[in-house]
Amino acid sequence: MSFDLAIRLTEILLGFAFIQQSMEHLYGPKQDQYIFIIRLILCLGLFIGFATHLLCLALALNTLFMLHRFQGPYNGGSDRMGILVLFTLCFVHFLPNLTWQYLAFGYLAIQLILSYFIAGSVKFKNLEWRSGLALQDVFQFSAYPVSESLRGWADKPRLLFIMSWAVIIFEMMFPLMLLTQTTLIIGLGIATIFHFANACLFGFNRFFWVWIAAYPSLFWLQNHIL
C-alpha cells in the first residue's frame, strides 16, 4: 500500500470513527454539544477529503478542548487511540520532509502492534489471567458486561479459560502477523472479530472503529519495510 493511499484511508476511517463518536455526544448534556457539533463538521470534511491538513489541525485543537472539558479522555483507551491517530496525521501533514513523515506514520504502526503485544504480555504475566479467573471477574462483577444475563458467563470457567488463552496467544503473536501480507490480513481479520466481540459483550463500540482506523499504517509499514 502506498504512503499516500494509506494516509488517505486513515483519514477516511478516522473521520468515520469521529463522526460516530460525535453523533453519540449529541445525545449528551447540552453544554457539551457545541464541541461535538464543531467536531462533526470537521470530521465530515476529513471523511470527504477537503483540506485535510487544516482539518487535522483544527481537530487537534478541538481534541484539546475535549480533554480539558472531560479532564481526560471521555472513553479511556478508545479515545487515546483516536488522539494518537489524529496527531500522527497532523505530524505527517506538517513535518517538512518525507523521512520524518514516514517516521511519524511508522510510529503509529508500531504503537498499534504494541497495543496488542503489551496487552497480551501483561495478561500472560498475571496468574489470574492464565487461569481464566480474571475473565471470570470481568463477567462476574466488572462494570463492563452490557446485560445481567452475560454475568452468567462467569459460571463457565472452562470456556473462560479457553477464551483467556485465545486472547493471550493472539495478542502476543500479533507482531508475527507482519511476516507476510496474507498473515497480516488474517491477523487483522481476527483482531476485528476480537474488537467486534468486545463491542457486543462490553459495549466497547468505539474501540472497534478507532482501531480499524489505524490498520492502514500496518499495511503501509509491512509493504514499506518487509
Binding site: T63, L64, L67, H68, Q71, G72, P73, G77, D79, R80, M81, I83, L84, F87, Q111, L114, S115, I118, A119, V122, K123, N126, E128, A134, D137, V138, F141, S142, A143
Partner: peptide
C-alpha cells in the same frame, strides 16, 4: 494540565485489563 492529559495518548502504555480492579457502582 491539558498537555499533561494529552501525553498518555501520544505515548500510551496499552496495559488493558492487566488486573481486574474493584468495580464502581
Amino acid at each position: 494540565q491539558t498537555l499533561k492529559l494529552l501525553l498518555p495518548a501520544l505515548i500510551p502504555s496499552w496495559r488493558f485489563f492487566d488486573w481486574i480492579a474493584p468495580s464502581p457502582r
